[in-house]
Simulated assay, not measured.
Amino acid sequence: MKSKVFILYTGGTFGMKESENGLEPSTWKEIIEYLPAIKNQTYFNHFSSINFTFDTLEPVVDSSNMNPAIWKRIADCISDNYNSHDGFIVIHGTDTLSYTASALSFMFENLSKPIVLTGAQLPIFHPRTDGIINLSNAIYIAGYKRFELTCIPEVCICFNDDLLRGNRAIKSSTNDFEGFSSPNFENLASLEQRIQISENVLPIPEGKELKIYPTFSQKVVNVTVFPGYNVAALQDLVDNKKIEGIVLKTFGSGNLPKDDSWKQLVQTCEKNEVIILATTQSANGRIEIGQYAASNFLKNPIVANGKDITSPAALTKLMWVIGNFEFKDRIKMLSKSLRGEISLYN
């Protein structure tokens, strides 16, 4: 069975080239010049039963420059080609890849096709690049019909023979080929000599019409608590209504210093309708508000329990919820799993 796969190149290490200012992104045309196998179509002849569409997000970007406006452009590009393709691949820089994967997962509701983000730790021009295998594996997931594989109808990250749920992944290494991990959720698939898909964890499409919610609020802050943290600057932002949301990365399972300034901050947030999404600094595990007395400050209706959500997913979810929904609905949406981004506990 034939498949139609859309590949969008956005920039990143995958296509980086040397310049006087260091590594800078190349264009897709430049990448092809360095890859005779692709240029002469012999690489894609291996996938002769797949019809490919290539596009470039101009201008290509270093992923450190990624922002909500570019997320929307990526989503629009996928949306415009959604009905005519079976799967999608987004080639992206690794630094913010997990943020983009999380953002896209929230933007698309009722997704029924795979959106696979991938990239590389070494540029495609490097003789030991990991880019080729990452792209090849992504093609198998996006072109699932051709290979008689199970459809994975969600936003995912394909890297170093692993397929991860996009909003569960974090960048765990700057130099290992296994650059991403999923600390609190099993991999969606393993792409070794045999491709093994964890079908038991995949969402079941309900056949509803695809919806896109594209707006992200940028009136949020990401706060990591540390010993001696001075709440005054954060209190000022809340007092003057300069922000609408805080991702609060607490100690351990939700603990804060025993200091009245934290209690005052939470009370002011409630007064000014500034939502706190409480998470843990630990990569593994979850927060449990009330388990320790040091977390009692967070027993407040303005605080959403982030459970085991990752830092990239917490931030993008908070931005997305504030950007698209009224205040009365936000706490409920932040506290439950919308796209499989948090685990369900008894």
Rank of each mutant, 00 (worst) to 15 (best):
R146N: 15
C77N: 10
I276N: 01
S48N: 15
P59W: 09
L8A: 06
K271L: 13
I31K: 00
K242A: 06
L104T: 06
Y34C: 06
G15F: 12
I70Y: 05
K4E: 02
Y9K: 10
S49A: 15
G12L: 02
S337C: 11
E148H: 15
C77T: 15
I78M: 06
N272C: 04
S182A: 15
L149R: 01
I31M: 13
F325I: 11
I70V: 09
I74D: 03
L164P: 03
I78G: 04
L35C: 11
Y34Q: 06
V238C: 01
P59Q: 03
M333Q: 11
Y229D: 04
G22R: 02
F54L: 07
G87A: 14
W262A: 01
P123N: 07
G254W: 08
D308Q: 09
F54G: 01
S311W: 00
V221T: 11
G254N: 02
W262T: 03
D260R: 07
P123G: 02
G252C: 05
P227E: 11
L35F: 05
N284S: 14
I302P: 04
D76Q: 06
L298P: 03
L237Q: 02
S173M: 06
M66H: 02
I204M: 11
P301Y: 08
A314V: 05
F297K: 02
T279W: 07
L191E: 02
N296P: 02
N45I: 05
I204E: 12
P257I: 03
K4G: 03
V266N: 00
L188T: 13
L135F: 08
S343Y: 07
K332R: 08
N296I: 12
K29T: 12
S112H: 06
A294G: 02
Q267A: 15
I78R: 04
N167D: 14
I38M: 12
Q264E: 15
R73T: 09
V223C: 03
F108V: 10
G87I: 05
Y82T: 13
M66P: 03
L135Y: 05
N51Y: 09
T279G: 05
N45K: 12
N110A: 03
I243N: 11
N272P: 06
S136R: 13
N175T: 14
Q267T: 12
E209N: 11
K72I: 09
E199M: 07
A314G: 05
R165F: 05
G93I: 08
L265V: 02
R330S: 00
K249I: 15
V201S: 04
H46F: 15
F14Q: 00
T150R: 08
K328N: 15
L149A: 00
S48T: 15
I287F: 13
G131I: 02
N167E: 12
P36K: 09
N296L: 14
N45H: 10
C269R: 08
L191W: 07
S19I: 09
Q267D: 15
L202G: 00
Q121H: 05
D236W: 00
Y82F: 01
V155L: 07
K241R: 14
K241D: 11
G143D: 14
G131F: 09
L111S: 12
L188G: 05
T96W: 15
F297W: 14
P127D: 05
K307R: 11
N272L: 00
D176E: 10
P183T: 06
A138K: 06
T316L: 14
T96I: 13
Y229H: 07
L234K: 08
Q218M: 10
G131N: 03
